[in-house]
Design a protein around this nucleic acid. Structure first.
Lengths: 349, 349
DNA sequence: ATTAGCACTCACAGTGTTTGTCTGCTAATG
DNA sequence: CATTAGCAGACAAACACTGTGAGTGCTAAT
């Protein structure tokens, strides 16, 4: 794990190479570094250092006589040690805060909105992954009579409205009876985590225990939570990666783009990969091209957790992304979302 | 409008050229036609006919000595006169019917599902455009008390649940009072078209006429309908067009793809363009590369209306799409959706 | 340890060559 | 007069060849 620390000048040169490559997207030559950076040594000296850096695996040459570009290891080192964080401007922060102003209490809605927000701010592809069902506790369900044989079921967790759907009833029930069902459900399930609720409601479960109308509500409850479990990922702005791919591999760009798209179509896989890569950390995590998913070899993922635990969000962008900006945007928005979710509890009293 | 009808052999040759080009995607030479099609004439004769067809604008050459490919006019003629419709298989029809089995009464849900379905069946990009608000009448709203200062508003039209959302209340109201609000709203608005409702609810409207809590519900009502008005288009499977673009213009594929994506991001524009191109027709309409939208020059759109009027759905695919299949899939699914929507009214009694 | 100088490498863009396919035209044919 | 055979010409596609210039590695001098 512990690398021998780089000599000062080499650190400087590496930083310059990464900075410049991120800015201009072309191999950096020894002369370029001097021009930009007024180092008081000659280009040959720089070349020697670059040689060392290459030997240690931080940079590489696309071909034998070209300038250098950073390797993944180089980006990694850059992110860990050399990065200048660039805070969001006051205006940008304001924009984010305002975007949440008109929010309603629907969790999916909020999360979807967040994905858009993060996309707009960073210009990269953004994703938001809601807290796992396992980590979300049922506050209560609300069951309301809508028509003779139709009720409305709303699932409310500690962070707001999770899902809602219609419950067809086999016979007409009075409002009192429906309230009774609701209370039966709440009495037995309040405080349970939603994954347990789902399993209970979809599994063979305690069929005999309840009367038919309760079972009917249960069925829908399970159905809704199941749907929620599947639709776990909101990704926006995939199109932003198109131009990057074009630049990366002009002739295979399209193929790679579709591969990426397909990999992300099944959101759950992506969510799990990122979750695993975060290794349980809470705050900002940067994965430099090491997400074990097909098509992600040339992309970095910046992610940040938010409470309730197990929820996280972030951006997907090429290795040469502006890490500083992505990191501050991601953590700022994670923070806002967290605040919004925790504040907005829809409690019963 | 009326073209002089093509001589029989030329029709045959044109059909063969389009058929073959759609199948193999490469210019068709005079010899190919003979091989495939056992015409009892020589290739020179075919060439002469091809010359005539080119002169009339039905086919063209990519370069001076290549085989021929259809022009838009050629595709147009093909679609209008030469096409063999290819019905969906029994299995495919079954698949579609089954997909609607688990349907709930939420209109957006159903429509979204339909877009997926059409994409899967055809393998092209599919879109579904819901009926305009102007063409949808309010069946009724349902307002239900959920917590002390929170109610749930459900908007129900002739075709199902249109939208729902939370209504924050400024003071606690009894269930009776809330029911009162609901009835006030329903009394004055039932049967009105949703666009009028929206304008009424968002505009300055009859502020003075109602007490505060009613206004509050009104506000949310307007907000929900506004959102609905904006989110009018469901497009799925855009990625399917990527490969086609790659084939069409290998070097500019990505650029064109993003242009297409951006054009479709604002769904309303797309919806209007297609709507205009359909010229009020009810059934299947095929637009061969003549949709006046940037990026659509090289794409055809097959669309089909469904009731309630002003709703329509269809596919977007390259000019060389399998029109027969696309048309039968589109019209079949339009038909199913129509049935489902009209059947599923959520009436009050 | 640093530097100047030089030989070497290689992408890139431009140019030429070859090959094979398919056309248009013309003159012959029934 | 429609049809055909035969031939010359067009041109994409694939490939090799070349010059140019940016950038390196190495070596010998400081």
């Amino acid at each position: 794990m512990k690398e021998r620390p780089l000599p000062d000048r080499q650190r400087l040169i590496l930083k310059e190479i990464v900075d410049r490559y991120i800015r201009l997207r072309e191999p950096v030559s020894s002369r370029m570094i001097l021009e930009d950076y007024g180092l008081s040594v000659s280009s040959a000296t720089v070349r020697n250092d670059m040689n060392d850096l290459e030997a240690s695996g931080y940079i590489e040459k696309p071909y034998s006589s070209s300038g250098r570009i950073p390797t993944k290891k180089g980006y990694r080192f850059f992110v860990d040690w050399l990065l200048d964080l660039s805070e969001l401007t006051r205006e940008e922060r304001l924009e984010i805060v305002e975007a949440y102003e008109t929010r309603c209490l629907d969790v999916s809605e909020t999360i979807h909105q967040t994905a858009f927000l993060l996309e707009n701010i960073t210009g990269y592809a953004a994703f938001v992954i809601p807290p796992r069902l396992e980590e979300t506790r049922l506050e209560r369900v609300v069951l309301l009579k809508m028509a003779e044989c139709l009720a409305f079921l709303v699932i409310i967790s500690e962070i707001g409205v999770v899902e809602h759907g219609l419950v067809p009833l086999e016979e007409e029930l009075s409002e009192e009876e429906i309230r009774g069902i609701m209370e039966t459900i709440n009495r037995s399930l309040r405080g349970a985590n939603l994954e347990d609720v789902r399993m209970l409601a979809t599994g063979e479960g305690p069929e005999g225990w309840y009367e038919r109308p309760v079972r009917q509500a249960f069925l829908v409850l399970g159905h809704l939570l199941e749907r929620r479990k599947e639709r776990r990922v909101y990704i926006e702005g995939l199109l932003n990666l198109a131009a990057d791919l074009q630049e990366m591999i002009p002739d295979k760009a399209m193929e790679r783009f579709t591969r990426l798209g397909r990999a992300l179509r099944d959101g759950a896989t992506f969510a799990e990969a990122v979750d695993a890569a975060r290794k349980g950390k809470d705050g900002i995590v940067v994965n430099v091209g090491d997400l074990p998913l097909p098509g992600f070899e040339e992309f970095s993922v910046v992610s940040c957790g938010y409470r309730p635990h197990s929820g996280f969000l972030g951006v997907i962008a090429p290795l040469w992304m502006d890490y500083g900006r992505a990191m501050s945007a991601t953590s700022y928005i994670a923070n806002r979302l967290e605040t919004i979710l925790l504040r907005s509890c829809v409690r019963s009293e």
